[in-house]
């Protein structure tokens, strides 16, 4: 199956959105989506890390693990790559880009345990993407994740002062709004499909 990378890019933003159709990265999505500015920074950090880790994992998987028959070790290798990459990025921007560090720095440790990052690498292996497809998939997923968390933050700011049934406050209402967003995103499903 040879799908155009451009199609994969747009599909992973709209029709196969990481949060709304694959439920990945929900933990930080629920916890951090209360303010547009913070969620935008987190989204950027996720996109950045996703783009690079997908690339690194692709190279490691196809040139080291698969030829040696060690494909079953991929969980350990992927999570180590992600953790190491995040650590590295944190050190580099702490040293050279101080402004950026204050914007993104606090989110970087959170990203290691963001299931979206590991999920994209695993999907890439399962769906057997080639090099360009993987890059498009990684970047598109990151942008899709950012799009939904920013939209969510916007909606949550709007409803901040509205009355919500007791017991549904906090995570409950966030999940319901996410459900409505997922419903809306089903409307995109006619455009492109990659599954």
């Amino acid at each position: 199956m040879e799908i155009n990378p451009v199609v994969i890019f747009f599909a992973s933003i709209f029709t196969n959105n990481m949060i709304l159709s694959n439920f990945l990265g929900m933990c930080s999505f629920i916890a951090i989506s209360s303010d547009i500015k913070t969620s935008l920074s987190l989204g950027q950090a996720v996109t950045f890390v996703l783009g690079f880790t997908t690339l690194i994992n692709y190279i490691i998987y196809h040139y080291i693990l698969a030829p040696l028959g060690l494909a079953y070790l991929r969980y350990i290798v992927f999570i180590v790559v992600i953790a190491a990459f995040v650590q590295l990025v944190e050190m580099i921007i702490d040293r050279y880009f101080e402004g950026l560090y204050y914007a993104l720095g606090i989110f970087l440790p959170l990203i290691t345990v963001n299931c979206a990052i590991l999920g994209v690498s695993l999907f890439m292996v399962i769906r057997d993407y080639n090099f360009l497809q993987s890059i498009a998939f990684g970047l598109g997923s990151g942008l899709g994740w950012m799009l939904s968390i920013v939209a969510m933050a916007g909606i949550r700011q709007k409803i901040k002062n509205n009355p919500v049934p007791k017991g549904l406050e906090g995570p409950g209402i966030t999940l319901i709004i996410t459900g409505l967003m997922a419903l809306a995103f089903i409307g995109f499903s006619g455009i492109v499909q990659i599954q």
Binding site: F23, K166, G167, I173, L175, T178, A182
Partner: peptide, 21 residues
């Protein structure tokens, strides 16, 4: 489909919060 999952989980949380109130 995905929306069903979100709604169901929200309902479960809602019920449990009422029990634990």
């Amino acid at each position: 489909m995905p929306p069903g999952a979100f709604f169901m989980l929200a309902i479960v949380i809602w019920i449990s919060k009422n029990i634990f109130k």
